[in-house]
């Protein structure tokens, strides 16, 4: 088992990532209308929910732990939402690409070695930054009244950390118990040691 081999995505990794993305794409599609409906409350309750949009990347990265997975997942999820005719249409693709890239960057900083709650939350936070950058241009974010903007940002941060930092972490922990993750991760040295008995 050379080290290099484990970092290249194989067909299983790619398929699993995309399927996960698709599941989340479907969730986004179904969430879309809910999200849209809480918007008129004006108090940015929608911003709390916004976090769910970043979930695909950290979730897939936690599951597969290889470079490129986070970006692929978020992009594929956005593409899926686009093909399912989600509200916002093509806009989602740009958000997906940028959020995926930012999310990926955080895992890359730790060289795909560390997948603790804090790193995952940080990756959600990075995706949030990406979305804010786009929103600044697309949704005229700076044009909101000051107090409103701050409320908005706070809600978004809370939402992102809860829904795309903690939630995927808890979900993957749950999945680990089911044993499906076992065959996704590289075979460890202990597993090989059994063969020497």
């Amino acid at each position: 088992m050379s080290k290099g081999k484990n970092t290249i995505l194989n067909l299983t990794d790619i398929l699993v990532t995309i399927v996960i993305a698709l599941v989340f794409g479907l969730v986004f599609r179904l969430m879309g209308p809910v999200y849209d409906l809480v918007q008129p409350l004006g108090l940015h309750l929608d911003a709390l929910l916004y976090g769910i949009w970043f979930i695909a990347a950290p979730f897939a990265a936690l599951l597969i732990r290889k470079p490129g997975v986070a970006f692929l997942a978020e992009t594929a999820a956005a593409l899926a939402e686009m093909l399912f005719a989600g509200s916002g249409g093509i806009v989602n693709l740009y958000y997906g690409l940028l959020q995926g890239a930012f999310s990926e960057a955080v895992f890359a900083i730790w060289r795909y070695k560390k997948f603790s709650v804090s790193v995952v939350s940080l990756s959600a936070f990075a995706a949030l930054i990406a979305s804010i950058i786009l929103d600044a241009g697309y949704a005229y974010l700076p044009m909101l009244a000051g107090w409103n903007l701050i409320l908005y940002l706070i809600f978004r941060i809370i939402g992102a950390i809860l829904l795309s930092g903690l939630l995927p972490y808890v979900l993957v922990k749950g999945l680990e118990k089911t044993g499906v993750t076992q065959s996704l991760r590289p075979v460890t040295k202990e597993d090989y040691d059994v063969l020497d008995k």
């Binding site: 399927v19 996960i20 499906v180």
Partner: peptide, 18 residues
């Protein structure tokens, strides 16, 4: 439900890859 859905999708993806 959620975990089973995810687990099943992952397994299906693995099988398809094989």
């Amino acid at each position: 439900y959620l975990l089973m859905m995810l687990a099943q999708s992952i397994r299906r993806a693995q099988r398809t890859a094989i």
